[in-house]
Design a protein around this nucleic acid. Structure first.
Lengths: 168, 168
DNA sequence: GAATACCACTTGCATTTAGCAAGCGGAAAT
DNA sequence: ATTTCCGCTTGCTAAATGCAAGTGGTATTC
């Protein structure tokens, strides 16, 4: 989708930037899954993103200032992609998408736990998460608590609960 | 975009429902512009939606339970489209899209005033607006204040301010 | 050093979606 | 009867997505 600026409405302009099938999925995976390289994003894509689409989106989002890219100091073939302040500020938007989706679409329980926590935690939790993302992606100071760790442990609990529930 | 349920993640499922170029634009126009017919949505489309896309989206959103359609009692050729509870619950999402767009995209001042009010008003204002939309679209009780009227007058003030500013 | 594996894409082709504008058929107005 | 209105539909082109093989450079293994 070309950047066409069909109108100056903020909702429209946000959609022109992010309103395709895959951009927010890439940002979600970096944000919640801490995927930072092409290979990680590809290998762990729940939705099965194609290589050409992933390459295209990483390039576009980087050009638009929503991601940044640096060489991986540990491995010369790889780049490390990071969120920028602009993409970190999408946390409330993604939280609302998660909340709406939990209510109106047939979500899987395990993949919903983060959305549930974000909804329950509200704006204070979102701010804490954004601070943590600034630490992980922008070299900001480490915040006192890890929202990320909360998400992970809730997800693992949900997986364990499911494994227990599916016992014969 | 076919409904493929590539994963059970709520963000992904929300995107599968609404993550195309036009669905949220149609919902926005119904919500904020009170456009209720095919002809109105077409004639007042700031972004110039094409007739085949509009027809397709109205059909899809209706089938998905995000819009409802009834014959227009005043005019036999027309239908009246209404938001449903599911689409009314998109207000916070659209509010956040507007807020993000105001910060990160080159918005026009006049078309941003609603987004600015929604951001300033926060969740209490969103709830009031949703109640008003339930009145307008779902025959719920009329709420005490009109958020809609606030939006309109702010928009008209911004237009007047622009007209005054462009005087030679 | 040669062979193999890894890495991030790129490519070629098919399918789907968006975009433009004329066209269609029925209803309403003149 | 003719013209206009109304909500689409259609035919065609352009753009985006999707699949899977291919490419070229780097790193590791034998």
């Amino acid at each position: 989708m070309a950047q066409t600026e069909r109108s100056g409405c903020p909702i429209n302009l946000t959609l022109e930037q992010l309103g395709d099938r895959w951009s927010l999925i890439v940002i979600r995976d970096m944000m919640f899954g801490n995927r930072r390289s092409f290979g990680e994003l590809l290998a762990h894509s729940e939705e099965g993103i194609a290589t050409n689409i992933l390459a295209d989106r990483l390039k576009r989002l980087t050009a638009a200032g929503l991601l940044s890219r640096a060489p991986d100091p540990a491995h010369r073939q790889k780049s490390v992609y990071s969120l920028t302040e602009a993409s970190i500020q999408l946390v409330p938007l993604l939280a609302h998408m998660g909340a709406w989706g939990r209510r109106h679409t047939p979500v899987s329980r395990e993949l919903s736990v983060r959305a549930e926590l974000l909804e329950k935690g509200g704006p204070p939790l979102w701010s804490a998460f954004m601070d943590e993302l600034r630490h992980l992606h922008l070299a900001a100071r480490r915040p006192p608590r890890s929202v990320f760790a909360d998400f992970q442990s809730a997800y693992e609990k949900a997986l364990a609960r499911r494994a227990r529930r599916s016992k014969p």
